[in-house]
Computed example of a mutant assay.
Amino acid sequence: MTTAITEHTSNITLLNVQLYYEWYEPNVHRSNQVFLLIHGFLSSTYSFRYLIPLLAKTHTVISIDLPGFGKSEKSTSFRYSYKNYSQLIIDFITAFSLKHVVLIGHSMGGQIALRTAKIAPALIERCVLIGGSAYLKRAKKAVIYSSYLPFVSFFIKKWFKKNDVKENLLTVVYNKSIVNENLIKEYGEPLQHKRFLDCMIRLLRHREGDLLSEEMQSIATPCLLVWGKHDKVIPLTTAHNLLTDLPNAKLVVYEDAGHLVSEEQPEKLAKDILEFLNE
C-alpha cells in the first residue's frame, strides 16, 4: 500500500554552514502552499514531530535545524545572529525555488520568522508564531565582553550543564504528565555535543535584540499568533503586545497549554493553522 506521506532527510550548505532538514510531501491532494518550520531555543525539528504529519496530509512540510542545534553543524565560525538565521531561511527558500511559503516559528523561531518576513516580504505568504519571542533586548555589553574571558566561559558552561533538562521541560509544559524519560532523552541528547556550549556562547555574543515595535509595525504579512495560556517563558502579555504592533495579526489562546504548544495541542494547532490559510 502506498503511504500517504513521502519523507526524506538531508543536509545543505548555506552561508558556509551545514543545515539539516526534513522534507515531507503528501502523495495526494497537495496544496501549493509550503510550510517551513523553525524551532525554538534549545530545541530542534523534533519538537514538531506531532504537528508535521497532520500538516503533511495536504501540504509540503519542511522542518530545519538551525546551526548550533539538533543535527545541524555546530560551527564555531558561523555568526549566530538573528540576521544570519533569517538569511539562511531566505537562502533555503531561494535554493529550492519555494513558492507560497508559510513560516511556522516557535519561540526564538518566531522572532526569526518575523525578521525573515520583514527582510524578504515577497518570499513569505504568511507567518504562524507559536509562543513567539519578542521585545527581548540584546545581552548587556558587560556580559558579552566577559564571555570572552576563559573563566567566565567556564561558568557559563557549568550553568548549562547544571540546568536540568527534565526541570526545563516541566517549566515549558502545562500537562506535566507528558514529560517522560523518552522526551527528556530526545530534548537532552543534542545538548551533549562537544561544541554545543561554544555555539551557545557565540549566540549570546551575536544575538541582536528582538525587533522594535516600530519595526514590526511595517510587517504587512498576515500573522497567526498561537499562545498557551500558561506560557511561563513568553507570557501572554507578549502576544497582546504583538497583536497591537503587527498590522495584520490575529491571536488564538489555548487554555490547556504552556510554551510547548506543538507537544501539548498538535491537533488543535494543525486545525487552526489550516483554517488561518483559508481566511
Results as ranks from 00 to 15, higher is better:
60 T>G: 09
71 K>Y: 01
251 L>K: 10
172 V>A: 13
25 E>C: 08
3 T>A: 12
10 S>T: 07
30 R>M: 07
45 T>K: 13
177 S>Y: 10
185 K>L: 15
30 R>G: 00
171 T>W: 14
134 A>M: 05
272 D>N: 08
266 P>S: 07
21 Y>H: 04
168 N>G: 01
164 D>N: 12
45 T>H: 15
185 K>V: 10
174 Y>R: 10
46 Y>R: 07
94 T>Y: 05
144 I>N: 05
70 G>K: 01
51 L>I: 01
29 H>R: 14
44 S>W: 01
77 S>M: 04
247 P>I: 07
126 R>S: 15
209 G>C: 06
67 P>H: 00
116 T>N: 09
97 S>G: 11
22 E>Q: 11
159 W>G: 11
133 S>K: 09
188 G>P: 00
128 V>H: 00
32 N>E: 13
26 P>L: 03
157 K>H: 10
112 I>L: 04
12 I>R: 03
16 N>K: 11
122 A>P: 08
178 I>K: 12
238 T>D: 10
165 V>H: 01
5 I>L: 03
158 K>A: 11
165 V>R: 06
71 K>A: 03
21 Y>K: 00
202 R>M: 14
9 T>E: 08
66 L>H: 04
153 S>N: 12
82 Y>D: 02
137 K>N: 14
123 L>S: 11
70 G>I: 02
67 P>I: 00
173 V>I: 10
216 M>N: 13
24 Y>K: 00
126 R>V: 12
163 N>Q: 12
30 R>W: 01
254 Y>G: 02
